[in-house]
């Protein structure tokens, strides 16, 4: 076991600037993009899943890929069983990159392929990634996907590829970007018009598709935005909150009318 003296002499292995800070959301003049997912409205219909695949050029998840646990869906609907027959229930929870303020994936990348951008997004630089998969291992939400194969779209399926989104090569890690290309396009347009980005003007593909509007996206730095308002709901919680990752995604609990009294009592 190393002594206290030995520890003091250990080399510094990471730049201090990349370590988590006390404040995961330092004040900026810009945006801090975030999402609210209302579990009471999410039906588990999967529209967001295919919308994301279509928008972001995700490769086909053939049957073998699913069996081998190597299917990629930047957003997935997790289903949880509760209870036993005849009182069993199913619960749905969409899970995607949480764009953490204290992102465990960012500190472990040896080549700074993943970092926090000024808008609060957890960004992956594909042409910098060398495929160590440290980030995927560090992510407690399992939302980073390694490309084990070159993506293929049998012709003419490749005609559908979105020219705004990079097709990722074999050997790198990819994940949800909050549809950063849509964010940037909207910001450019607002700049050209000489106005701020309006609340609700940016819609990632999953948010746009959601038929029940369970997903809401916006600027958390704008206290008047819908996403800011909802994130302060009494039903609000974040995934794996004790880890201190400070996610940019807030979930709203499903309402269970049979437990109304208990909820009111505990202030949830």
């Amino acid at each position: 076991m190393a002594s206290a003296t030995d520890t003091a002499e250990l080399p510094v292995v990471a730049a201090a600037a990349t370590l988590p800070t006390d404040d995961p959301h330092p004040e900026t003049d810009g945006h801090r993009w975030g999402m609210v997912i209302d579990a009471d409205k999410c039906t588990g219909c999967q529209a967001c899943v295919v919308a994301c695949q279509s928008e972001n050029n995700l490769a086909l998840n053939e049957e073998n890929r699913v069996i081998e646990r190597r299917a990629k869906t930047w957003i997935r609907i997790e289903r949880y069983w509760e209870g036993e027959w005849p009182n069993a229930k199913a619960r749905f929870l969409p899970v995607l990159c949480q764009h953490c303020g204290n992102a465990p994936c960012e500190t472990v990348c040896p080549v700074w392929a993943t970092y926090h951008n000024p808008d609060g997004l957890n960004v992956q630089v594909y042409n910098r990634c060398i495929g160590t998969r440290f980030c995927a291992n560090a992510c407690p939400y399992s939302v980073r996907y390694f490309n084990f194969w070159e993506p293929e779209w049998p012709s003419p399926m490749d005609r559908q590829l979105n020219p705004d989104v990079t097709v990722r090569t074999k050997g790198i890690v990819e994940k949800c970007t909050f549809c950063i290309h849509r964010i940037n396009r909207t910001k450019r347009q607002a700049d050209r018009d000489g106005r701020p980005v309006a609340d609700g003007e940016v819609e990632p593909a999953c948010v746009q598709a959601c038929p029940t509007t369970a997903l809401v996206f916006g600027d958390l730095n704008d206290s008047d935005s819908k996403v800011s308002e909802l994130s302060h709901s009494k039903r609000a919680f974040t995934l794996l909150e004790p880890l201190g990752t400070a996610p940019a995604i807030t979930y709203l609990k499903k309402v269970d009318p049979s437990h109304v009294d208990e909820h009111e009592e505990h202030g949830h």
């Binding site: 529209a47 899943v49 919308a51």
Partner: peptide
């Protein structure tokens, strides 16, 4: 303004 999974998959 909304679609479902089948609508989204129309291009494929």
């Amino acid at each position: 303004g909304k679609t479902n999974v089948r609508g989204q998959a129309g291009v494929q």
